[in-house]
Design a protein around this nucleic acid. Structure first.
Lengths: 117, 117
DNA sequence: CAGAATCCGAGGGGATACTG
DNA sequence: CAGTATCCCCTCGGATTCTG
């Protein structure tokens, strides 16, 4: 019981839960770079993902109110995804992650170069 | 094939892979607050985790070089965990996450308060 | 175009018992 | 004290097929 409380009141844990999912971080990043993106565009931006999975990840992000889904009632269907206000507040996290990721990649590159000696 | 390349050269994806795991973020946070922590101390700090899982998460963090494991050859055994240099560079991410998580929690609290009217 | 529905398999979390 | 070794379970990712 007290475990569940901790799940809900720890800021890091709620963050963790919100971004748990193989593609969510990259999805959020694309949305932070593009303002609005249609479903199939997003699909092309994510090589390797399948439609079903993309839909699920987007729905979860929508439930957590990081992403807004705008449906245009036209034929053929048109749906655009964008960051909510909460989603935009998440951008600093993405930026910090990117800084760290680049650091890590540079480190790996250095290691490969040393191996060539 | 090209998917795998993207997996390895995208900074966000490498970050994502490094912290994928139910407890890693919280573990990193505790290590950022304590400099060095023994195994059983960490266990107590994480209500709900089991020994086996804690070990696995720590091993993965060790492989990814975020966490250092110092074994003292004494009886009974004593092992201390700490952040590596790479792990310390991750702290800004944790901080950004915490800011965002607090924001989200405040938002939820507001919603509950409105429900009471 | 943007999904919904279904099925599958891998693997990651968790519990328990044992050990140097 | 700090693990290892199993076993189970269930979720999550992924592939495929169908639809308004």
């Amino acid at each position: 019981m007290s475990e569940e409380i901790q799940q809900e009141i720890c800021p890091l844990t709620v963050t963790q839960n919100a971004i748990a999912g193989r593609w969510k971080i990259v999805i959020l990043w694309h949305l932070s770079q593009n303002e609005m993106i249609r479903f199939n565009e997003l699909l092309k931006m994510l090589p390797g993902i399948s439609k079903g999975i993309l839909t699920r990840q987007l729905r979860e992000l929508e439930v957590d109110e990081l992403v807004h889904r705008e449906v245009y009632k036209v034929v053929p269907p048109k749906v655009e995804y964008s960051l909510t206000e909460l989603g935009q507040k998440f951008i600093p996290v993405l930026e910090a992650m990117q800084v760290w990721g680049k650091d890590l990649l540079n480190k790996k590159i250095e290691m490969y170069e040393k191996l060539e000696d």
